[in-house]
Write a protein that binds this DNA or RNA. Structure first.
Lengths: 161, 161
DNA sequence: TATATTTACGTAGTTAACTACATTATTATG
DNA sequence: CATAATAATGTAGTTAACTACGTAAATATA
């Protein structure tokens, strides 16, 4: 790989590297769907998988399970509904709530999508050496980070705060 | 940490998790600068450090060293110039090129900024256990990814290509 | 029971990365 | 030497996350 100044920056460059890598993967995923002629977007698998497991969920419930903001979920499900993959009903006892569930089109197409996501999973898996347990390290990192964020950690080190 | 559906998705959720974590760190960094009353933004340290090392660089040179697109660099240096941290001169022999370098204001403020970035580095370091060598694993991951991207890997697994 | 608080959803605006295209300058080539 | 190719910068538009604010409904409280 060619020279990369960010990698010289050590721990300080971590956020930049994580974002760069993530962006590259998402972009590549978008290209893939386009080439395969599928009208779905990279992060929709989150909602498909979620509704496959839980049958029907409201915006807030999805946001909470994904650790996303609710406007992000609204954007995703809005597009998916428009594309015909989701349907929704209003809650009978609470008129604020809207429940989303997979449409017939979604159920029809899911077997093909699942094939692709399974292949994607295998493909990503092969990015790592057998014994790297990267995902466990990432989980540990997420747990640590959730306990104290960048700002707090830095101010602590500065002796301020 | 509370329930997180993305973590159930294994390798397929990798890109989402990397982005979520990176976004959270950048957001926290922005808050930190605000609280400290500093008029700089999270990723400007990339340009400060780059110009500290190389003295002066053009947009394209910076983009190449950072593995960023040139429009991203233009946006960053544009803001930094406006904030008074950078100056620029046109190349004498090639009038397309513009060289950027740190201003007097930048040199004045850098010692304080470096204190903060050093503290940030220490703070991030403590996210990891002593023996995790996460950065090396990340580097290995980046190298692997640069050789074959998500789309190619997935299509290979699918047997298409 | 009236009012205050919380919850659910929606909209608007911000951010930082990207690609695609446009323009101009330099360099290479027939 | 004219023209084609390449390179540097800039602009416009896309993407997916976010926060902040608004509105309406449900729930809790005085």
């Amino acid at each position: 790989m060619q020279y990369d100044f960010v990698n010289e920056l050590g721990y300080l460059g971590l956020a930049v590297r994580l974002k760069r890598l993530s962006d590259a993967m998402v972009h590549s995923g978008r290209q893939m769907y386009k080439e395969l002629g599928l009208d779905i977007e990279p992060n929709w698998f989150l909602i498909f998988r979620l509704l496959k497991k839980y049958n029907q969920l409201s915006v807030t419930e999805m946001a909470s399970k994904l650790h996303f903001s609710h406007p992000s979920v609204i954007t995703m499900v809005g597009k998916m509904e428009k594309a015909g993959y989701l349907n929704s009903t209003l809650d009978k006892s609470d008129s604020r709530k809207k429940h989303f569930f997979l449409s017939a089109k979604a159920e029809e197409n899911l077997p093909r999508f699942e094939e692709i996501w399974q292949a994607g999973t295998e493909g990503v898996k092969k990015l790592f050496s057998e014994d790297s347990n990267f995902l466990n390290l990432l989980e540990a990192l997420e747990v640590q980070y959730s306990q104290k964020d960048f700002k707090e950690r830095t101010l602590n080190e500065l002796g301020n705060e």
